[in-house]
Amino acid sequence: MTAFVIRRLIESVVVLFAMSLIVFVGVYAIGNPVDILINPQAEPLERERAIAALGLDRPLWEQYVTFLRGAVTGDLGRSFVHATPALGLIVEKMPATLELAFVAMLLAVVLGIPLGLWAGLKPDALSGRAIMAGSILGFSLPTFWVGLMLIMVFSVMLGWLPSNGRGPTVDVLGIGVSFLTVDGWRHLILPATNLALFKLALLIRLTRAGTREALLQDYVKFARAKGLPQRRVIGVHVLRNILIPIVTVAGLELGSVIAFAIVTESVFAWPGMGKLLIDSINLLDRPVIVAYLLVIVAIFITINLVVDVLYSALDPRVRLTESRG
């Protein structure tokens, strides 16, 4: 177990390092940030000074070494546009994104598991089929278009909910959150629904497939033969067994929800780090792009690692074969 964790940690560091190199070199090759960041009418001397101040005059490898040295100490460079530390900008926007992602994931789990269970218990009933048809639609609909339609219906036509922004935030331990106020929820509900839709479809399918499989197992037949009521058979024997893979997938998907928030945040003008990334790509704000990508890769690697370890802890049948190798 320990060997496995250590191996995965080393692997993670290698991936992170490789990503930093690819991203840094690649983003450098986009174009010349000098042209974008410095007033074209500036005096040549002024230009020189600005280039030197941003460190853009030094060779690429030297910039990378400087960047790496900083990265180890948590300094990922300064934003060209905002003139503040890039990592600080990301961290500042992170609570908004995480809040959105958690609410979306919660929605997907709270709705997806019961709906999937229902569809799995009654695969041939009209209700079961309707749930599956809805889940296929959830897979097919492009997230951004669903977002637009939600705005069209609930903001423009019905005028029930605001179409953009985050609304007021309340500080909890120094972090602004919006789920504590009614107006915060009004702002949160549309983007969270939008973001949840795809994962909801996924969880419905997974739960349905798991339920159908579990119902054929001997332990369910025995539980029925013992005369246990249906509620207990489903609630304890079926649910417990299908919950492990579902929880695993839900955990793994959290990372992808954070990544997908880029799209939803752009549609709803949600002030999170995804919107910051899109703005930074458009402005060629190199340090912020690099910082965002490294942060999200780190989040992904952490989530994958935690889920892998938890999975083996939850399910004794899973042997971490790599620990022997």
Binding site: V23, S256, A259, I262, V263, V297
Partner: peptide
């Protein structure tokens, strides 16, 4: 394996950020 552990949208965005 490594590539498929990241969502497609993220990979595409990284590439667009990198390639232009």
């Amino acid at each position: 394996d490594i590539q498929l552990s990241f969502p497609a949208i993220l990979i595409a965005l990284i590439l667009i950020a990198v390639l232009g």
